[in-house]
């Protein structure tokens, strides 16, 4: 579904990605793990069209989308859930979800409002509340729900566990597991490697803008290098 080859991204002369290649097949959950500043978010932002790549290609079902505007990328069905729970704070929960429909650009929705409420029942209870007044976990559920309203074929998740309490992380990842089971293709970026490897089929390890390792998540979880570097404390 997604095929990234030799992707390079620089900010003001500093190379954030130095020739990254990875692929995500339909129905898979693929994790991208690595330390802070390794280039994980840069990769997602290049796919989403927020930053223009300096080189390489990003193919979605065979069509090169590198350098497309963010709204064209959403039109193709690639929806990013940005880091840091970026809800529209002054709008209600329901309005946030309705804004997500903009990403459809006339395509048929894959998740109805009722579907999203079924995945995250708390959003139904809080539908008329200001999004800014929700707890961190509820906001994370809202931004995922908002992206679902945009009919994603591929969902890009940027650090969904960041700053959340363990019990809330469990709820969010349980919901992601249900979405995966229903057939959603997911590219998951996480600093919490243990969590990412548990939730994914395959994973890539990125360091300083280069893919260092890749393979089945279960294998990587047993890889001594990975366990020493990323799973030590968890």
């Amino acid at each position: 579904m997604l095929e990234i080859a030799d992707l390079r991204v620089s900010y003001a002369g500093i190379q954030a990605l130095r020739g990254v290649s990875l692929n995500v097949e339909a129905g898979e959950t693929v994790a991208l793990i690595g330390p802070n500043g390794a280039g994980k978010s840069s990769l997602l932002n290049a796919v989403s069209g927020l930053v223009r790549p300096a080189g390489g290609s990003i193919a979605l079902n065979g069509t090169d989308i590198a350098g497309s505007s963010p709204w064209r990328v959403t039109e193709a069905g690639v929806l990013q859930v940005p880091e840091g729970r970026q809800v529209f704070a002054e709008m209600t929960v329901l309005e946030n979800l309705q804004v997500g429909q903009t990403a459809l650009h006339g395509r048929d929705p894959t998740y109805s409002l009722a579907d999203v409420y079924r995945v995250f029942p708390i959003l139904d209870e809080r539908r008329d509340q200001r999004a800014g007044s929700l707890s961190g976990g509820q906001q994370q559920m809202l931004v995922i729900g908002r992206a679902l309203m945009g009919g994603p074929r591929l969902l890009l998740l940027d650090e969904p566990s960041l700053g959340l309490a363990p019990v809330i992380i469990e709820q969010v990842f349980a919901a992601l597991a249900r979405l995966k089971e229903a057939g959603l293709t997911i590219l998951l970026v996480e600093q919490n490697a243990h969590l990412a490897l548990t939730a994914s089929d395959r994973a890539y390890v990125i360091e300083q803008g280069v893919i260092e390792k890749s393979g089945a998540s279960a294998d990587l979880a047993r890889d001594p290098d990975v366990t020493a570097l990323y799973l030590g404390q968890t």
């Binding site: 709204w71 959403t74 929806l79 940005p82 809800v87 529209f88 804004v99 903009t102 990403a103 459809l104």
Partner: peptide
């Protein structure tokens, strides 16, 4: 930023 990611130009 979030609006752009939701397909808004």
């Amino acid at each position: 930023h979030a609006a752009m990611l939701m397909g808004i130009n």
